[in-house]
Design a binder for these strands. Sequence first.
DNA 1: CGCCCTTACGTCCAGCGTAAATATA
DNA 2: TATATTTACGCTGGACGTAAGGGCG
Lengths: 304, 304
Amino acid sequence: MRLQQLEYFVEVVRCKSMSQAAKNLFITQPALSVAIKDFEKTIGVQLIKRSNKGVVPTTLGKQIFNDSQEIINIYKGWPNASGSGDICGDVYIFAIPSICNSILFNESFFNLKKMYPKLNIFLDQVRPHELLSHIIKNYPSIGIGYYLPSERESLFSQAKMYGLKTELLFKDEFNILISNKNPLAQKDKLSLSDLKKLPLSYYSDTNDNISLPYQMYFDDSFRFRLNSKENIMELIVHNKAVALYPEKASRYEYCIRSNLVRPMSVENFRFPQVEFFILYPAKKTSSIGLMKVVDNIKENLSDF
Amino acid sequence: MRLQQLEYFVEVVRCKSMSQAAKNLFITQPALSVAIKDFEKTIGVQLIKRSNKGVVPTTLGKQIFNDSQEIINIYKGWPNASGSGDICGDVYIFAIPSICNSILFNESFFNLKKMYPKLNIFLDQVRPHELLSHIIKNYPSIGIGYYLPSERESLFSQAKMYGLKTELLFKDEFNILISNKNPLAQKDKLSLSDLKKLPLSYYSDTNDNISLPYQMYFDDSFRFRLNSKENIMELIVHNKAVALYPEKASRYEYCIRSNLVRPMSVENFRFPQVEFFILYPAKKTSSIGLMKVVDNIKENLSDF
DNA sequence: CGCCCTTACGTCCAGCGTAAATATA
DNA sequence: TATATTTACGCTGGACGTAAGGGCG
């Protein structure tokens, strides 16, 4: 017998309806029907009477309804029990640079910390090619990154091998970040020939597989290989270079919000489309704290 | 989270030892170790400190130990909860004639009824070839019968198809039941030629695949095909015929206990060896009452 | 080395979703 | 037919057993 079944039963009695309770519990109605039936089977007696109008508890059903509420009240007080109890523990998040601001800019992310003061949340910025290894080394932890559509299958299967679940958050498109000081920033769109006047900055790791292939389109008389987003942004703001960044994910960058730089696309030309994903332990035994953070991020970044 | 995990945790704290608790809980020590670890993971905090001397609860562990006991006390009062609460419901047992007395003769079988007065137990005597169909028609129910070793695989796989679990109870050997009035009963063993003087009685169903093949060894000038054990026993007691019966399973027959008839073997000759089995629903959601009866029978009839 | 607990891995069952069936007004 | 519940079935994950691994006296 699972504690969850008690919660299911309580919700069914409260709603006087299987279908309504199923909605509230975020499971399908047949699944709930079976769960309640199994619950009755282990208890050994009928707990609710079914009809096409809904359900009503039997005499004993009411008794067990009360007991169940009492039990739920006890364990909801436990740390990390699915109530809002005393959720605690350490949660590690590894995210690629472009998405970090989007996470941090979101007020509800900080509400997590207010809601669960004992929950320690650590956000580490890592380069895309390091993401998976960080997640695995620091299991259990959460990862946020992107993949090119062609990398999708290999990422999903690799993650699965390590007991990780991968979920798509949103699709994004790379664009050029350019300083508003640059006269070209006045245009609606850049042309391919404009690019030749612009030096491209990119990450110093040799696996920057987004920017590297496009180097040839830019002014290749300069070479800026830097190892932090801050360095790169600094360069862009001072109009010494441009960079390729995912558009949606970067929308909360300070330089963009304050109009120091702007994202621009190129006429008749598309930079890579990518899909942002979240990676987290597939096991249901993951700490509730971790799952709260996962749910929060998914809520904030889905359909971004 | 399962209610069982609370019981596991409570037992571990009580024993101050994983291995001892595992013994009391009838699971292996590694299984318990994992269960407790999962419990801690969902709660989010360490509940016990491990050492090579055993385990001790942490501060929070003690708190949750108390809460768990409280929760267990609540649901142990429910009908069929694994406490000795108010176990109720109907339990149907189908057993072949030869084993019925062994079940009924056992005092502990009747203690079941004393312990759980609301549990209705129905015992039906059925012929071996009808056993499976009765079990299926009356699902969930319990069956007790025997098979020839050659029938073993087919029975097990067929039962599995119907969601039934089959367990060996004990091995038995068929022997001749003969009236003590008969002078041959004075001998130590019968000879094959003695059999020719003895008419064989057997069940009137055409599927009596134990007795039928041996008909030729007996006095075949008589043919007694009867449809109840009482009729057959009556015949044997009055020395009008003999019959083939499994020896161990029949030991509680009144006629045998009171020395009216005795089982005899034949020199240099063996009647079929059979294996008695119990059949019951494989699902863990079976009513606790049914499982109590299954456990009782297994306890009484294993290594008979 | 022995005791106690953990990790690894394979097997089997339970939980849930999808789709289809059933019941009642 | 419309609404509510049940049944059927496939997939995935969890529970437990067996066997092997590690820490501490």
